[in-house]
Design a binder for these strands. Sequence first.
DNA 1: AAAACTGTCAACCGCTTGTCA
DNA 2: GTGACAAGCGGTTGACAGTTT
Length: 279
Amino acid sequence: MGRSPCCTKEGLNKGAWTAQEDEILRDYIKVHGEGKWRDVPRRAGLKRCGKSCRLRWLNYLRPDIKRGNFSNDEEDLIIRLHKLLGNRWSLIAGRLPGRTDNEIKNYWNTRIAKKAQERQSNQSKIEKKFTMKPQSSDKALPESRDNGLGCNNILGPPAQQDIECSKIACMDGTCGDIPCSLTSGADDMVIDFNINMGKISFPEMVDFDFPMLNDFDISDLSNTVYCKGKEGSPILDQQLMLENSRVSEECVQADIMGSDFRFLASFLESSSEEWLGDA
DNA sequence: AAAACTGTCAACCGCTTGTCA
DNA sequence: GTGACAAGCGGTTGACAGTTT
């Protein structure tokens, strides 16, 4: 026997809500509060499905809904959160006060996804231009660059001196290879890799297998990035990554560099045109 | 002026998850 | 442990407005 439908659809209104229906629902929730959505239509006298009432309230009638265009900051945040979380719109919406998951999803599908697609095709062109293998020290790499992602632009982790990987900080110019590993508690997998913070060769980074790293479900708190030689010392957990994932122009926070691979890949991608321009 | 096309967004649908008896 | 139910979620649809032909 299948599940009973959330409501009988016979005799119910569908489609756009009228101003009168909005008023009835708003008044009802003002008095009775949110919840028990199945009972709402009957008790409020609405010819709507409970599910529809819930959606109308959450996406449109709630008093704290922010209206109007997305600001550049909001768009930037959406892009970065989407890199981190994927299509988990409700999680993303939770980081944008006043915005609903539906609104963000629509905004992504109609605006940002297109931009991302354009950038993706640009990236393909760039990758064709370089054929270097990752982390091959004996090969003649195209000239490494020391700007952009280099020392002067990378900020160290603030007030995290107790974390071994604070050496990633290279404000003072003492940069070097940062050996790290990504472990997945769920799958018992380990991926080792190096990030050379001193001289980042763009072709090296382009060929680095970021998609492989991104196969990890980073929403799983058991996935953590560790520094080699310091077993059990996470650079950042997922929650901290979210809290610290910010970028200002060309300044990248070094603590992110060790953990947010999608962000890093994206940053490299966005810097690629500059690199090519100099070539 | 009208038809065709395109973009946007509210709403719907089906599935999953959480809770409780 | 199991089933029923409510709530939540993300993908998709369709109406409508604006633009192009």
